[in-house]
Design a protein around this nucleic acid. Structure first.
Length: 239
DNA sequence: CCATTAAACACCC
DNA sequence: GGGTGTTTAATGG
């Protein structure tokens, strides 16, 4: 039988290989797919966390907005990535919005399924530890770069996180994301993001394309402007 | 003083 | 129609 994109997504996930076959079958039966149009919310701040979400295709962003309309994007989740375990583990409500940047197909695993895996499958728990650790290190890096480096390095770093192999094992080298969205990710205005992108392009780390960016040198992006390494550049006032 | 940004604009996909 | 590249005036550190 031909398996659906949902089933493929589930069975190809890193944690799937740690489960007994019958348990994995059960997970596949209990999960379902949801299509989210561009701009629509998958989860909203304050609503009860009742599913674990995996991105089959498309792109999800995690963001918050203030009452006066300003917004900040923490990170994006690309194809193959999972999100929402934090609020799920706490049995609480979402602490941020999950918005589809473009039309996306999402794998939805009910909370009770997630709970069963966490409490009965040591391999799954091990995966979650690794996953949480990867996210923790992502956000530590974010604070580090936010405090030590300028806009170009911050943007480089934020882009690189979208290609983190621990979180998104199936990332290609192109991400379809407008420069406005990239700016939101890095905390920059659109035209400043545009300028930074071209700085990075001139450095040979990526290629600016229409409606997205192709990464040419992921390691270079990740360490852009980082001191310490051989021939490392120094912090502060770039340009 | 200098970098950044919002707003506005004209192309281009 | 949305994304992109630029200019301009305003803003804030």
């Amino acid at each position: 039988m031909p398996s659906s994109p949902l089933e493929t997504m589930l069975r190809d996930s890193v944690w799937a290989s740690t489960l007994p076959a019958d348990e994995l079958d059960q997970v596949v039966r209990e999960s379902y797919e949801r299509r989210v149009p561009a701009g629509a919310s998958l989860m909203r701040t304050g609503e009860p966390a009742d599913h674990w979400f995996g991105v089959i295709d498309g792109l999800l962003k995690m963001s918050v907005s203030t009452p006066d309309g300003r917004q900040s994007t923490f990170t994006g989740v690309t194809a193959g990535g999972w999100a929402g375990e934090g609020s799920l583990l706490k049995l609480s409500r979402w602490r941020y919005d999950g918005v589809a940047v473009r039309e996306s197909r999402i794998a939805c695993m009910p909370r009770h399924t997630f709970e069963r895996l966490v409490s009965t499958q040591i391999g799954f728990a091990r995966f979650l530890l690794n996953h949480l650790n990867a996210r923790l290190s992502l956000f530590i890096g974010l604070v580090e770069y936010d405090r030590l480096f300028g806009p170009d390095a911050r943007l480089a770093r934020c882009l690189a996180t979208l290609f983190n192999p621990d979180l998104y094992p199936r990332a290609g080298q192109f991400v379809a994301l407008s420069q406005e969205e990239i700016g939101l990710l890095a905390g920059l205005s659109r035209q400043r993001a545009n300028e930074s992108l071209h700085v990075l392009q001139r450095a040979g780390l990526l290629r600016v394309e229409f409606g997205g960016v192709t990464v040419l040198d992921l390691a270079g992006l990740r360490s852009f402007s980082a001191p310490g390494v051989p021939a490392g550049r120094l912090a502060a006032g770039q340009r």
